[in-house]
Design a protein around this nucleic acid. Structure first.
Lengths: 255, 255
DNA sequence: GTGTTGCAGATTGTTGACAATCTACAAACG
DNA sequence: CGTTTGTAGATTGTCAACAATCTGCAACAC
């Protein structure tokens, strides 16, 4: 009765929230927020106990997180927060640069006036924080800026793939404490130029700026790492045998 | 005793192959091979029975497949082979084009002589098949060509992301039977030019060719679809209520 | 003392049973 | 005759117990 097909959003939420989903999100939150460091072990029974569920949903959530690249599983040994090597971070930066380039080209075509305004708003906030040199405040704003940019490309698939890579890079940052790559507000001018190019619908320039911007982050990462090569390697004193396998997504040709 | 640290690969295989993994691969194979069509329902008990395992591993495999974008889950209703709309296929093609461009640029720097030879070998085979106009033989070769190209970029992350998108597009092909997009051997000349550019290490040209190549596939897809707009919509006579939600990967800003 | 072997505890992998929810059909009602 | 309501069956969501495997320590042999 009443409204049969109003599709009340509240209903939809409860409809899709199984325990597995909840557990998945909670663990993801813990990993990305830094509550758990890369290499930490996730004990099924402990997690289940803390969240007051049984081990079934926890195991299901682990499989999803593994596919998302946030944890690594070793049979009969457990799941661990994924550790990202410098080489892997390098790879991810490279892919991200390519996607950023695409984002620039597409966003220039499709961006709306409201989105430009929102970006400029965010830019102002970033410049304030940059002047205050508060690095830890700057990083999340930078992440938000690029996420917003990705959404301006008007391609949900692109946004989703991009977001996954950013998550993995975030993991790397947590692991090495190599704060330099995306944190220092070196790039406020570049950010402004990007938004300007988008506002003028100059896709080629936006694409070029964004690609260069991402590659610079990668360079800064290397610089930071090389500077920190003589001091202790940031943590991990004993470092277990390291029999970690590669990730498991494979192309697989049909037929 | 004997060889304590030979890391015999046979051991490693049994080490990582849990039932969940096996089930995951088997279902993936069934979906990509076309044994199951998009929209088909995957019944937990049935799958468990066919593979002689209990429902636990099956459910875990489902969660991984969902994250990989191959199935869609509706709470209390089941999991279904993902149906990809034209709009989504369009998005994926767009992202794939961007990645192809990146692949061209990177592969030009890193490709080896052996890889060039392998590509040329494959090209010859493709031209033979193209002359014979056997479309169904051409498609898998085309897939292999692009997978090989992706591996030449020397970036495992890129290869993995690219492979996932290709899988999803394959799903679209299965769904619509829109064979035109990647099947017709229109592009043997373009393929040759791409390999030539890579062999000359002309990254800019390879990137441009590959981007254009992917975008052409997208255009062909549209053309094929528009040509088939008056005839019946390729299948799905009743078409259930269609309350499919969006995919569930989300960026999620930390802290 | 050094290295090996064998247990005990803990953790993961798997299973089957139970609870909650949905679908479909049929009976009752207007 | 069409609509609604209730019930039965099937299916998914969750749980707790069992089996297999691993880790660490202690006892033993050399």
């Amino acid at each position: 009765m009443a409204k049969p097909n109003s599709s009340s959003t509240a209903i939809k939420l409860l409809q899709s929230h199984s325990l597995t989903t909840l557990v998945h999100r909670e663990i993801e939150r813990r990993i990305l927020s830094g509550d758990m460091a890369p290499g930490d072990k996730l004990n099924e029974a402990d997690v289940a106990g803390e969240l007051n569920v049984s081990r079934g949903p926890v195991r299901e959530a682990f499989r999803a997180l593994e596919q998302a690249g946030l944890v690594r599983t070793e049979k009969n040994r457990g799941v661990f927060v994924r550790e990202i090597s410098l080489a892997e971070a390098d790879e991810i930066y490279e892919v991200r640069a390519g996607l950023d380039e695409l984002i620039g080209r597409l966003a220039a075509e499709r961006i709306t006036a409201a989105q430009v305004a929102e970006l400029r708003e965010l830019l102002k906030k970033m410049q304030r924080v940059a002047r205050a040199r508060s690095v830890d405040d700057y990083y999340p704003l930078n992440v938000r800026f690029h996420a917003l940019l990705a959404s301006c490309a008007g391609n949900a698939t692109l946004e989703s793939v991009y977001g996954q890579l950013v998550n993995e890079l975030h993991l790397y940052r947590r692991e090495t404490l190599a704060r330099g790559a995306d944190s220092f507000p070196i790039s406020t001018r570049e950010h402004s130029e990007i938004v300007d190019a988008l506002a003028r619908r100059d896709g080629d320039r936006a694409a070029r700026l964004l690609y260069g911007h991402a590659m610079e982050s990668r360079e800064r990462l290397h610089a930071t790492l090389e500077r920190a090569v003589a001091p202790p390697p940031t943590r991990t004193p004993p470092l277990p045998p390291q029999r970690a396998p590669r990730r498991n997504r494979r192309p697989e040709v049909p037929r």
